Computed example of a mutant assay.
Amino acid sequence: MQKSIALPLIALALCAGNLPALAFEPLPPETMDDARVFKVEILQVTDIEPYQQAYTGFIKSLQESGLVEGKNLSINRVAIDFDVEKGGFWNRLGVLLRIRQETSRIVTTKPDLVLTIGTPATKYARGMLVDAHIPLVFTAVANPEDAGCISLVDAGEGATGSTLYTDMSDSLKLVRDVFPNAHRIGMVHTDDENGVANVAEATRDGKPLGLDVSTRLVNKTDPIAPTLKELYNGGRGVDIFAVPLDTYYGLHRYEAAIDLGDFGIENKVPVVTLAMVRVPGAALYVGADFTQVGRLAGSQAAKILQRHTKPDVLPILRQMTPTVMVDPARMAALKVTLPAAMVAHKTETSNGFWQIDMAQ
């Protein structure tokens, strides 16, 4: 009995030895879907410069992967601007309805992938896209959990992307190292989801570092000067201003950012920005670079389109080391000397700023 079973098994083994080995290595991207044109829909709320930077980074990353618009890539981009600058409950409700309407349209077009830029578009579009089994990639989101993700690295079902999240504690330590005499930080923000998250993190993480954060909520159409005066209180209030990751500072041709910079210059109060947005008059910039974060989202999108990778298995990416920029002219005007360790790792940029390589 045992002999009769063993003989067929030996024969099978001998035959198998003559079979060619099976190859399981994935095909290189350039051999997959060569003739196909991928359809990508892009959805965002407001059209501000940082979002454009994220979009540019996303497109460049796709190009580096061989996905080129007009060749094998078709892109339709929609920026919702439904009275978003006015803020308020009813206008926010209007934005939500517009996002839902655009998402419904997107679902009917059945694109190969959707990119959402910013927290509102990501938060309110993802449910419908997941239900329609359309891969979602997001970018320029401050805290993924505020956009419905499971964690900072797990986007949950049907989604992945890149985040602007940086460790606020590390950023505030850097601010404290550069401005050791500043202990009271003033932050002006709106109901922007990113801004609210940024301010909450700064308030929480500042306390263990001996930094007291005072915040004020304004509408997106409010001028910033009255609130700055209230926080500064003629020199008896805050001794440094910090800009959160809030669309308020990019609206109205950067009016709030410009006014904040001017106020800092006139009152000799340092202004730092915890987001890489243009703030004339800021002495220190610390945060994630929108273009780089957009590129990270593009790398995820390329895997989904070219290799048919499911979004669920791709982690949320982020810039692990924040970008740090210094305006030496503003530092000199404030009579502040940059720590020697930072000076040793500086590189002068084309606009006269110093970029500090914190990875060294």
Rank of each mutant, 00 (worst) to 15 (best):
E230S: 02
A275V: 00
L228C: 05
V78K: 11
V279N: 08
T31R: 09
A333S: 14
T221V: 11
T122C: 07
K173Q: 08
G298W: 01
I356K: 05
L7Y: 13
I150G: 12
V238D: 03
H133F: 12
K110F: 08
K310R: 07
E30T: 04
S4Q: 14
S4R: 13
P328G: 11
I48C: 00
A301P: 05
G298I: 06
C149Y: 04
D192S: 11
Y248H: 10
L296N: 02
L97T: 10
A359N: 14
E230P: 00
D222T: 01
L274D: 03
A182K: 15
S104N: 06
V153I: 06
S171R: 15
K3C: 11
R126I: 09
S4L: 14
M325S: 11
D191K: 09
T215P: 00
D177C: 11
F290I: 01
K303E: 15
A159V: 10
P20F: 11
G118S: 15
N267T: 15
R236G: 02
G210L: 05
V336H: 03
D289H: 05
P223E: 02
R204Q: 13
D239L: 07
I240Q: 08
A16R: 01
V343P: 02
F263W: 07
T273H: 10
T103Q: 13
L284P: 08
T273V: 10
K303Q: 15
V78H: 02
S151N: 04
T108A: 11
I134T: 08
I265N: 04
Y165W: 06
E41K: 06
D112M: 05
P50Y: 01
P270N: 13
I5H: 12
S74I: 01
F38V: 04
V271L: 06
L14I: 13
A35C: 07
Q306N: 11
